[in-house]
């Protein structure tokens, strides 16, 4: 919400900054969290693509005013039909 002078209310700024900092804090203080997330993402992704190499990179990144979950997964080739195809 904007105030009279068109600035963001400091309450909203505080909330947003907290969400961002806590995303990083929670990921940093619990290494298993990112590991489990990586395993689950890879399990689903491999139903659709054949993953090439070992260089799977998954991390949180602050982008302007929000946090992004960034994945870089090298693809060898797409599977023909995806989940149900099993090929």
């Amino acid at each position: 919400m904007l105030n009279f002078f068109g600035r963001n209310q400091s309450r909203d700024v505080a909330k947003n900054r907290l969400r961002n900092v806590l995303a990083h804090d929670r990921a940093d203080t619990s290494p298993e969290f990112m590991e489990h997330l990586r395993e689950d993402v890879m399990r689903i992704v491999s139903e659709y693509v054949e993953v090439g190499g070992q260089g799977v990179d998954l991390h949180l990144q602050s982008v302007e005013d929000h946090v992004a979950l960034v994945a870089n997964i090298p693809v060898k080739q797409l599977r023909r039909r995806g989940r149900s195809g099993n090929n």
Binding site: Q9, S10, R11, D12, K15
Partner: peptide
């Protein structure tokens, strides 16, 4: 709007 609320 200058302090976080309880709900926040």
């Amino acid at each position: 709007g200058d302090m976080m609320s309880v709900d926040d």
